[in-house]
Each structure stands twice: as C-alpha cells, then as structure tokens.
Simulated scan of single mutants.
Amino acid sequence: MMTLYQDWQANTVVVCATTLAVSLAVLVHYEGLALISNWLAKRRELHSRRKVLYSIFSVLALHVTEIWIFGITLWLTLGYPETGLIKGADPLHLLDAVYFSAVTFNTLGFGDLVPVGPIRFIAGTMSLTGFVLITWSASFTYLEMERYWRK
C-alpha cells in the first residue's frame, strides 16, 4: 500500500496539478458567473422567469466543465505511476476519471472507485472545491432569482 509521503517528487506533481486544477476551476466559475450575470442583465427581451432558467442551466454547465477540469487533471496526473492509482478502475480511462471527479466534486463519493497514494490529495481538495463552488452557485442563483423572479 502506498503512503502519502513515500515519493516527494510524486507529491510535488500531485500538489502542483491540484493547485492548477483548483485555480482553473475557480477562475472558470468566477468568469462564468460574471458572464451569465452580464448576459442576463442585457437581455431585456427575455421573460424574467426564462432568465432564471438560463441561469440554472448555465450554472450546471459551469459545474460540468469544472468536473471535466478535475477529471482530466486526475487522468493526466495518474499517467505518472508514482502518484498513485484509482482502485476499481484498472486501467483508468478518461471517462472513469471524469466519473470519479463527478462523484467526488459533489461530495457524493459512491466508494466504487477509491484513490490510493498521493493522488488522494487531489480527491480531498476536489471535494472541498466542489462544495465551495456549489454553494457559490446556490448564492448566485438565489440572487438572480431575487432579481428576476418577482418581475
């Protein structure tokens, strides 16, 4: 069984990949929410309730994009064998990594795929990032509904 601190080079790769994925996901989320909000504000011809629907579908699309960011990062990082493995998917295909990312990002974690080794750091950080981004989306959705729902 691999321990987390066995290979410092592998740990460095995992931490750098995690930092990059988190930064990219947060940037995508921030810019995405800004674009959605600006786009909705400019669309005076749209019915208010339709604006709420557009915001919901847009937020879902942002989350799917962020899940793919983490899935691709995980898949690429596991190309370096010392970073660990995902038990339950041997070999790990890209869609397996995206699936693992989806269940981890939304903190569901079925347990059918289990990270082993330094790669656990990405999984834990992905879960925290997903939780933060999902709650950010909930706040954004609430504000958009307050703005458009009653009109």
Rank of each mutant, 00 (worst) to 15 (best):
S55V: 11
G124L: 12
A138Q: 08
P115T: 04
C16E: 00
T18L: 01
I119F: 05
V59Q: 08
S37P: 06
K151I: 08
L76A: 15
N38E: 12
G117A: 03
Y142E: 07
S139K: 07
K51E: 03
F121N: 06
S127H: 06
T12Y: 00
L46K: 13
T135F: 12
R50A: 13
T18P: 00
S48A: 11
L143P: 01
V59C: 15
V28M: 03
L94T: 03
L74T: 01
D90L: 14
V14D: 00
R44S: 15
L35G: 13
T18F: 00
L92W: 04
V116R: 06
H47A: 08
K42D: 15
L24M: 13
F105H: 02
Y148W: 05
T73C: 04
H63Q: 09
F110G: 14
I122Q: 06
H93Q: 15
L24H: 03
L128N: 08
Q6L: 11
Y148L: 06
D90N: 15
V28L: 12
A89N: 03
A97F: 00
I134D: 03
F70A: 00
S23W: 11
V59Y: 10
G32P: 01
A21T: 02
L74P: 01
T141W: 13
N38M: 13
K151W: 10
S58N: 06
L40Y: 10
L92N: 02
A34E: 13
V26Y: 08
M145A: 15
T107S: 11
F131G: 09
I86K: 00
L128I: 07
S48T: 07
I72D: 05
Y54G: 04
F100C: 04
Y99M: 01
L62E: 04
S101E: 02
P91Q: 10
L74Q: 00
A102L: 12
P118K: 02
N38Q: 15
I119A: 03
L27W: 05
V114D: 14
Y80M: 11
F70C: 01
G71H: 07
I72A: 07
A10H: 03
G111D: 04
T65D: 01
E66K: 09
V28E: 06
V52G: 00
A89I: 09
V26S: 06
F100A: 04
M2R: 09
W149R: 07
V114Y: 15
P115F: 03
A138S: 08
R150N: 13
F140K: 06
Y142L: 09
H47C: 12
L95N: 14
F131V: 03
L60Q: 12
V114P: 03
T104S: 11
Y54K: 04
T129S: 14
A10S: 08
G88K: 04
P91V: 09
F121E: 10
